[in-house]
Design a protein around this nucleic acid. Sequence first.
DNA 1: ACCTGAACACCGTTCAAGT
DNA 2: ACCTGAACACCGTTCAAGT
Lengths: 211, 211
Amino acid sequence: MRTTAHAAAGRGTYHHGNLRAALIEAATALLEAKGPLGVTLRGAARRAGVSQTAPYRHFQSKGALLAAVAEEGFRRLARTITRAARRCRDDPIHALQAMAVAMVGFAAKHPSHYRLMSGPAVRGRDHPALREAAVAAWTILTEAVRDCQRAGGIRGGDSAELAFVLWCLVHGLSVLVVDEQLPPAVRQAIPLERLTEHAARLLLEGLGQRH
Amino acid sequence: MRTTAHAAAGRGTYHHGNLRAALIEAATALLEAKGPLGVTLRGAARRAGVSQTAPYRHFQSKGALLAAVAEEGFRRLARTITRAARRCRDDPIHALQAMAVAMVGFAAKHPSHYRLMSGPAVRGRDHPALREAAVAAWTILTEAVRDCQRAGGIRGGDSAELAFVLWCLVHGLSVLVVDEQLPPAVRQAIPLERLTEHAARLLLEGLGQRH
DNA sequence: ACCTGAACACCGTTCAAGT
DNA sequence: ACCTGAACACCGTTCAAGT
């Protein structure tokens, strides 16, 4: 934030400011303001107060800048679900459900950012740091599943596999929300939070011990 | 197909050929060949053998053309899952599982097309025909759920709500596949088809009568 | 080491004009 | 009714040049 204010004021020449961080910040602002199609390398440079070609000193391409923005998104997502889980450390199943709700809530609150994170603009294959951040978020969920298994809340077996199914469900809901593709019949009546809880509960019942 | 051949041969002047269909076809070809970012209004026009501005007689904008391509994708998807279900008409639960596998298979086979269908490039809100096609596909799944309920395979209640949860799960998996975001631990060992079956089974157990 | 300016090959879209 | 050509305001990226 401070960096942007600095650039906006136009006092510095940016010759020793942290342009890299400023560009990530500018791109993020563009993303939230104008959506994925509104993010432009030139636009980010303008917003940071530098020439159109300056970004190439810090990012190999537009994709590399977007990857950095997405990476930051995954870090925020990880923080968000961690915080949600901490609030119910006593009941692992409840914690898992809270994480699911928090994740969908994050997507609903930052649709463009979530879209970028899961979009084709940045493929993790080309950006190791991005992939790491994504895996870190995903690992948190896996560990929460393992906690549930230890506590006897859900069946045994490969926790990564079980966590993956939950991830699919929550990610699928998030993406539908972000793309405004919730079927009208569903969207009309049910608040998002209850919808997520409901979906997670159905799955967790499937993951129960009884089967 | 025939239209493209016709255009490629360069014999007609396209003054009465079906340019609209030819453009949809050209855009689809570009999409499959070069991915979502490779689809261009000018490129589609070139491929169809007309000037850059000709498309505007048939589509209000690039978005409208993309919406038409996405619409066709939903129709193909609907056909695909219908066909899959027909092959096991005797067992509704098995049919539902087959539909899930077919849907993920469709996404894996046509990643760019699936991406476009669920992307931000085309919002259903602005394109009623697209929305209709999407709802039609989604309705097929809902009816399959209802069949299961009648047969006693899964619990009662709002079939749209249950179908929606299944849709989230399958769509989430499809999107992860398309975006190449399957966690390494998962992708390494398990073939996609088995993964889908496994995910669907877990959920369907959650949807069972016992709870 | 970091940044600028001009340039290239593209875009989507508009508008006047052609048949 | 349907299409073309020139034009406008943008892109991402490269390259030589500046400090």
